[in-house]
Design a protein around this nucleic acid. Structure first.
Length: 134
DNA sequence: GCCAACGTTGGC
DNA sequence: GCCAACGTTGGC
């Protein structure tokens, strides 16, 4: 079991939309590093759903329900998608600002490479974030 | 809306 | 293969 963090612009695809739809195909990834991470995701892996933009932060927990397959929205190139479903919303949004100010989370990819849209999360980081959720 | 950081493209 | 120019992302 691995943990991840996937980013989305809420105007493009939001947590609310994922909950409303019940599941989704995570398409549109056009960055090789992000794509490779996407391909490493296994069925049952859990990830943080992160909203980028004005109110950037982690909003929910979701799960991979289907491993990678070709991205039907890609006109050219070798791109992939996975299918996901929501698990639950976090009790509060864990903002990027808070993550940056939390010493235990300084090694997160989010802090070091904020642009990567599909990134791994260490098990320790995952469990720590859940402890500060309350 | 600006701009820093990063990735990609293409000329040489 | 280097690197300048350009495009995109995303925080502020």
């Amino acid at each position: 079991m691995n943990y991840w963090l996937l980013k989305s612009e809420p105007d493009i695809f939001s947590w609310a939309k994922l909950v409303e739809d019940g599941q989704a195909m995570w398409d549109g990834v056009r960055n090789y590093q992000a794509r490779n991470n996407l391909r490493s995701m296994k069925k049952g892996d859990i990830f943080f759903f992160y909203h980028s933009g004005k109110k950037s932060g982690i909003v929910g927990l979701a799960e991979v329900i289907k491993e990678y397959y070709p991205d039907p929205t890609a006109k050219e190139g070798d791109w992939s998608v996975v299918d996901v479903k929501p698990i639950r919303q976090l009790k509060r949004i864990i903002s990027l600002n808070e993550i940056k100010q939390t010493p235990q989370l300084q090694s997160m990819v989010l802090v070091k490479n904020s642009r990567l849209s599909v990134q791994p999360v260490a098990a320790g980081e995952y469990s720590f974030i859940l402890t500060i959720e309350e």
